[in-house]
Simulated assay, not measured.
Amino acid sequence: MTIFGIDISNNNGPDVDLAEVAREGFRFVFAKVTEGDGFIDLTWPAYRDAAHANGLLVAGYHYLREDCDVEAQAELYLAHLGDAATMVDFEADSGGIETFWAFVNAVRARGRAMNLSYLPRWYWQRIGCPNLSRVPGLIQSSYVDGSASAAVLYPGDDSPFWNAFGGKDVDLLQFTAAAVVAGHRVDANAFTGTIDQLRALLGYPPTTTQGVLMALTDDEQTDLYRKVQEIWAQLRGPDGQGWPQLGRNAQGQNRTLVDAVARLLGTPADDKATS
């Protein structure tokens, strides 16, 4: 199945009615949070809260700038993101792939996973076609002509717009900047899969839960799921690969937090394994 969503920011104004967006059949919203180390999109908090209130999955994105300190950008972004999935907007003026990874790692070091990466094919080609195989949640953009409803404009699941690049399959496709949605012309995105697959990509829990989770609201389940993700990331490191700042064990692998604590206590398991 194909699921549609929209991408909005202050450029669309503060009055995109997300209740109407949901009624028109859209299932997710991506909205701008910050840019560089100083710009804050004042439309974000209301759009985030309206998305939650109307059952729309929501991700907030940071427009990454090469000419700003990466750590400062991560601080600004997470200070304003709140309870939404993470997304980096990496395109014109964002620099090379090393800037991308520096920002992603800065976000991860602050206890948040990175869920989505807007990195269009045209920009990938501009920066020398780097390897993208480990990029989280790749969003590619290629636009059809005209302005109409998203369903009419969508080029189809077999469109070459979906072709993999940089060693990475495309997870979402932004296929127009002129979809007519809730009386506005906006960017529209497509996801080919189930809603639970999309929820997983964005770091949200599945729609079907069992046992004690049934007593929690959707927001409480989302909050719990994200906290478990953050605890796992802190213990195991980004993508479970350990923390480079904690050094390496005898096998050349980055140490986890538990490895580092054991080493401080004088009983490093990685040293024992080689004795």
Rank of each mutant, 00 (worst) to 15 (best):
M1A: 14
D7R: 06
D7N: 06
N11H: 15
N11V: 02
P14N: 06
P14Y: 00
D15Q: 11
V16K: 00
A19E: 14
V21H: 04
A22F: 05
R23E: 10
E24T: 07
E24L: 12
K32Y: 08
T43R: 00
P45W: 00
P45I: 00
P45K: 05
A46H: 12
A46G: 11
Y47D: 10
R48A: 01
D49T: 11
A51E: 05
H52V: 09
A53V: 01
A53P: 13
N54W: 06
N54F: 02
G55F: 03
G55K: 03
L56V: 04
A59I: 05
Y61I: 00
Y63K: 07
L64V: 03
D69M: 05
D69K: 08
A72D: 13
A79S: 15
H80G: 05
L81P: 01
L81D: 09
L81V: 05
T86I: 02
T86A: 10
V88A: 09
V88M: 14
V88H: 07
E98S: 09
T99K: 13
W101T: 07
W101D: 09
F103T: 00
F103P: 01
R112V: 00
R112G: 03
N115A: 15
Y118W: 15
R121W: 14
Y123S: 04
W124K: 06
W124Y: 08
R126G: 02
G128W: 07
L132A: 07
Q140Y: 09
S141H: 06
S142V: 13
S147A: 14
A150V: 03
A150N: 01
Y154E: 08
G156H: 03
D158N: 14
P160I: 02
W162C: 05
F165D: 13
D171G: 12
L172I: 00
F175A: 03
F175H: 08
T176I: 12
T176Q: 04
A178R: 12
A179D: 08
A190L: 03
T192D: 14
G193P: 04
L201W: 07
Y204I: 03
Y204Q: 05
L213H: 08
L216W: 13
D218F: 15
D218V: 14
D219G: 14
D219E: 15
T222Y: 10
Q229R: 06
Q229H: 12
E230P: 11
A233Q: 14
Q234G: 13
G237D: 02
P238M: 00
D239R: 14
G240K: 11
G242R: 09
R248K: 08
A250C: 14
T256N: 05
L257S: 04
V261H: 10
R263I: 10
L264Q: 15
L264F: 08
L265Y: 12
D270M: 05
K272D: 13
